[in-house]
Design a protein around this nucleic acid. Structure first.
Lengths: 241, 241
DNA sequence: CAAGCGCTGAATGTATACATTGAGACCATG
DNA sequence: CATGGTCTCAATGTATACATTCAGCGCTTG
């Protein structure tokens, strides 16, 4: 039955998978603070597995950019500061603009895609500062809507898997940034309007408008984040070779 | 002594590093053909190490996109066909245009950067179909010049490490594509001219011109590659879930 | 008392032994 | 003869034992 299949699939996850997921979540959620050392034996005992799956999980964390090798034999949780956010957005601008262009091109020749983004545009428009109070439930609901937008974008990028994969990797880091700089309700409402504009441009099949709307959104988001973030450590020398 | 230091650094490479480098090279060079299975025991005996470093090397190959998990317990060398090339260039366009823009911005305020790209522009201009015969030595020399250009771009992107890292990952795949579709000398000469135009625009600090020149170059390169490649298997259904 | 040397210990890097699962072949039976 | 089942085997997944290296600390000596 379906439950058995689900269990089967659940147990098909290896210990390495679980270790990676656990560590990834704890890093993104901030339970493992930036700079915290990642020792094999310590994490192995903590997660209740041997060192082998932990090693594999560490390798994936490094590949995802969530852990950094500091020195020859020391692994730490990646730091993330204002400069990193700027650098991350340099990449996001490149990826998201192109994604918006491609999604619009697809919507122009694929009715279901266009319909999906039309629906999303309407739902984003329904989110205003009036309906949105900055309590955690509302915030969570809004982020869920953004996640649906991201999923629609992914669905429109099936023919560009390299781009889709690169975008997916940036989303992990974005989740960390969100924890650092919590959006206020005004910013959330503005963000909803910007997302709506992007979705509408994609639905209309207007690639350049979609790219421009994306650039605008990213600029506003970056500005807001920097306003809410501790000053970039121009004094504190970054300890990254 | 310097030699000792070099040896020291060489021996500091772990078996996993060597295994990864060997496998990566052999995949890029085509010694390990696309679709070839990667078995732990087989590669371990072949490379003269145990399974543990091989496992780590496999994990890195997957992260780099050079190997793909087919089925729950089978790893194969990633395939690469005409559709993959198109998808790869969707990503490259996004990354390289942004890189050109950022490099130009840096050149506008950093004289050494501008000077470096001026020199590169001149060297690219010196490469013409007259001076370039399509023997392997010439081709290798030209690709070395392109590598210098890439290095200069990297140097100009120190403040955008995420972008630089994403670009570096695309270069690995580009090397594989080059093996599939060897450029003829006419294409190489045209490519040199296009690179020269990009370098000059960056040196002039003109970001939009640099981005446009990049887009043009990528379009021409993609067209040339597709002309030299076996037809995209629209009939052969791609076996990628 | 300070400086340099060596030692100890804990961590990673590697190898190998054990567990488990999946595929393929062979045999039995309808 | 085809089909289903079981059995074997080989490969991955995991755990653990061994090797190696580096950091911290104490001791010795000038």
């Amino acid at each position: 039955m379906a439950a058995d299949a689900a269990v089967q699939r659940a147990t098909a996850l290896t210990s390495a998978d679980r270790a990676f997921e656990t560590l990834r979540t704890q890093i993104v959620e901030g339970e493992l603070a930036p700079g915290a050392p990642l020792a094999e034996v310590e994490q192995a005992t903590r997660l209740g597995v041997s060192r082998t799956p932990v090693r594999e999980a560490f390798a994936r964390l490094i590949a995802a950019g969530l852990a950094t090798e500091r020195g020859p034999r020391t692994l730490v949780v990646s730091d993330i500061d204002a400069d990193d956010v700027t650098a991350l957005f340099d990449l996001r601008r490149a990826l998201d603009e192109q994604a918006a262009r491609l999604a619009a091109a697809r919507a122009a020749s694929d009715a279901p895609t266009a319909a999906a983004f039309t629906t999303l545009a309407d739902r984003f428009r329904a989110v205003t500062s009036a309906t949105l109070q900055a309590d955690d439930a509302q915030r969570h609901g809004y982020y869920a809507l953004v996640a649906e937008f991201d999923a629609a974008l992914d669905a429109a990028l099936t023919s560009s898997p390299y781009l889709a994969s690169a975008i997916a990797s940036t989303r992990v880091h974005l989740a960390r940034v969100r924890r650092l700089a919590r959006d206020d309700d005004a910013r959330l409402a503005a963000s909803a309007a910007e997302h709506g504009a992007i979705a509408r441009a994609i639905a209309d099949g207007d690639g350049e408008r979609a790219a421009a709307a994306t650039r605008l959104h990213l600029h506003e988001a970056l500005t807001s984040i920097h306003a809410h973030l501790p000053r970039s450590g121009a004094n504190r020398p970054k300890e990254r070779a």
